[in-house]
Every structure is written in structure tokens, then in C-alpha cells.
Amino acid sequence: MNIYAIRAIYVFEMSRTWRTLMESIASPILTTSLYFIVFGAAIGSRMGDIDGISYGSFIIPGLLMLSLLGESISNASFGIYFPKFSGTIYEVLSAPVSPVEVVIGYVGAAASKSLIIGGLILITARFFVDYQIMHPVMMVSFLLLTAISFSLFGFIIGLWADDFQKLQIIPMMVITPLTFLGGAFYSISMLPPFWQKVTLFNPVVYLISGFRWSFYGVADVNVGISLAMIMVFMLLCLTGIWWIFKTGYRLKN
């Protein structure tokens, strides 16, 4: 294991985060704060409780997941896309590092960054609404697993994309709708029976449901299934990356 290389990539990526602190950290926090003000404090006060939880508190896990997914994907995809775009990837390709080490470095940094943002959002939320965390260990596990698997997913997007448009199209066209329709702002039981069935094809539903369970002990779907789903997703991403490195797809000519 080339530990020095992993550390070099990780430190390099994190230093990019600190350098662009405003865009990296401030903007997602600001955006989520706005959500809390609008949906939590303003509209939430007119809404009834869901599953015995006030609306403002109910949306916290979903909002957190929303940022976590978006941040993980964009951090990781940009992190690997940019060296490809600027040509500096030559150095990583010519270094005595294995694909596993490259992935740990880049994905680790992307996941760390989105976890930092997640933590900051959680703290920010305290200023607007009340919440409790009934199962802290599970909550942290969900956070970690989500950050890592969606950073892996973002890494794949970054490898696949060969222009900036492609870099943004999947997060915009796929992830955003899936998260909004994934039960961040409502309980699935509020949907008509037909749509309750359809929505179960949305993987984000399992994430948000499981995550919300770790806060309030209530879930739309079984927590075990939620965990299993995220593991499956992670496995799929790992397989994809393994294949990319094996074939050199979009990395080497």
C-alpha cells in the first residue's frame, strides 16, 4: 500500500476545499439554511405534525441527505474530472499507485468534505428547529455510507464525463428529482397507494427513510432494507470503478 500517495492525494484535495472555502462550504450551508427558514420556520408552522414529529424537524434528515448526496457527487466528480481536463492526471497515472489507492485518496477527500458540510448543516439546523437523534451510531453509519457510496458514484461520473456539461447532467437530471421525490419533504404514506408503490423504485427513498429512522425512530420502509440498499449501491459503484480501471476506460488511451 502506497500510504504516502493516498495521503498526498487526500491532502491535495482537501487543500482545494480550504482554498475555495466560500464555495465549498459556505454555499451549501446557506442554501440549507434557506430551506429551513422557508419550509421549517415559515411554512412548517402552518403544517401539521407527521408521524408525531413537527414538520420542521421532520424535514431535517431529508435535507441533510439532499446536501450530502449533491455534495458527495459534485466533490468527487469534480475532483477527478479536473485533473483529466487540465492534463495533470498524467502525474497520477505515471505514479506507483494502484487504482485502489487513487480511489481512497479522491473518494476519501470528497466524502470527508461532504461529511464536514453535513455536520455543519446539522449544527446550523439547531438554530431553526429542534431535533433529536435516537440512534446516533446508526445515524453516523448512514452518513458515512451515503457519503462514501455517492462519492464513489461521483467519481464514476467524473471519469466518464468528457465535458463540463456531462459533469453536471446526471446530478441535475437524475439525482435532484430523485431526492425531491424521495420523501425529504413528506412521508410516503401521504401519497396515493399507486404512487406509494412507484416510489419504492426510487433508491433515495430508502436512504432518507433509514436516515430519518435514526433520528426519530419512524421509517417508511424497514431500516434493514434501507441499509441493504445502500450497501448494494456501494457495491455497484465499486464494481463500476474496478471495471473502469481494469479497462483504462476514459483514463488511458
Partner: peptide, 19 residues
């Protein structure tokens, strides 16, 4: 070359990358 880094930072990156 990664243009926003300092010379020293990028040197340390290279050295680390090569283990």
C-alpha cells in the same frame, strides 16, 4: 500543472504520490 498551488505544495504532492 495544477496552477493554483504553490511550488512547494505541488512538489510535496509529487513526492508523496511516488511513495
Amino acid at each position: 500543472i495544477a496552477t493554483f498551488e504553490s511550488v512547494l505544495t505541488t512538489m510535496n504532492f509529487s513526492r508523496g504520490l511516488f511513495g
